[in-house]
């Protein structure tokens, strides 16, 4: 049974030069306990997809097409008040910068207790018990003592752990984690990745992990959706997509990542850059950079097609299968 389904979602921003689609025709689903990675370059639309799901798209932008269902109920057309209740209770969020996600004038405990009491019917003492428990679960040493301290008294990695506790303490079904490790040092990043994975396994919460880092996806996610120029170009299990990418963009991307190990003389590179949202070409958005482009790629947008295991949006794949 799927927890979240997004179908044909399009988010548009009206601007002075006409409406610009930040994301187009995005379709995906997440099951309970699953970690879905969303990977792509800056401006590919991965964060926008996350923001659309939690209903945090800044006006004048908005959803112009498609629907989002959480446990079968539509949540894309809810009024702000109703959406606010869903946020926190059913969908939690973890953002890149742990410092701005926490209120600097409240202690960590006050923030956790407030969140717990807003969403769960618990006495103050019970909520505090639970807050301490959550701090322990996210790996904060001596949580009984640290619960009454302020966010600035924590280090960057510990702060991000608190943010994770805050996102999970109301026991949501889904967590959107937007670049949760980008602001952290490598050695701390590894700890946070592992923590996220353990918590998903333990609590059965589904995670949508938005990141630009393929390494983080490889270490964390079960499935991955690769976005390019506002669309999903390839989606499937991490092992499938990373080891046998089908879309030329994914394979180009994988080849261009420098690795530890034997050193190549020249890194494989994709020429050019991703088009800006207001300058996407007619057909496939990747066609201008694609080494395998055909005539049809310049005229027609390829659809995302395939199986549960793996879908690809590329004319090349259709050609082969036909």
């Amino acid at each position: 049974m799927t927890l979240l389904t997004v179908e044909n979602l399009t988010v548009a921003f009206p601007g002075r030069r006409g409406t610009v689609n930040a994301i187009e025709d995005v379709t995906l689903s997440v099951s309970p306990g699953e970690i879905l990675g969303m990977v792509g370059e800056s401006g590919a639309g991965k964060s926008m997809t996350g923001a659309a799901i939690i209903g945090l798209i800044e006006p004048p932008g908005g959803i112009t097409q498609g629907e989002i269902r959480l446990e079968g109920d539509r949540i894309d057309n809810l009024r702000p008040e109703a959406m606010r209740r869903i946020r926190g209770r059913k969908i939690g969020a973890i953002f890149q910068d742990p410092l701005t996600s926490l209120n600097p004038v409240l202690t960590v405990g006050e923030q956790l207790i407030e969140t717990i009491q807003t969403h769960l019917k618990l006495s103050k003492a019970d909520a505090r018990e639970r807050a301490i428990d959550w701090l322990r679960r996210v790996g904060i040493p001596a949580p009984e003592a640290r619960i009454d301290t302020y966010p600035h008294q924590y280090s960057g990695g510990m702060r991000q752990r608190v943010v994770i506790a805050l996102a999970l303490c109301a026991e949501p079904r889904l967590v959107i984690a937007d670049e949760p490790t980008t602001a952290l040092d490598v050695s701390v990043q590894a700890q946070i990745i592992a923590l996220l994975r353990r918590l998903a396994r333990e609590t059965g919460v589904a995670v949508i992990l938005v990141t630009h880092d393929m390494g983080v996806i490889a270490e964390t996610a079960d499935r991955v959706a690769v976005m390019y120029a506002g669309r999903i170009v390839e989606v499937g299990s991490v092992a499938e997509v990373l080891t046998a990418p089908k879309h030329p963009y994914t394979s180009g991307l994988m080849a261009s990542i420098p690795r530890i190990g034997p050193r190549p003389d020249v890194l494989a590179q994709i020429e050019g850059a991703m088009p800006r949202p207001n300058a996407r070409p007619e057909g496939c958005a990747f066609a201008p950079r694609c080494p395998h482009k055909m005539d049809i790629c310049l005229q027609q947008r390829p659809k995302l097609e395939g199986s549960e295991e793996k879908s690809v949006a590329c004319h090349l794949i259709e050609e082969v299968s036909v």
Partner: peptide, 12 residues
Amino acid sequence: VPDITMAHRDME
């Protein structure tokens, strides 16, 4: 270092 070839190590 997160590694695209080494999935799901336990690094916590």
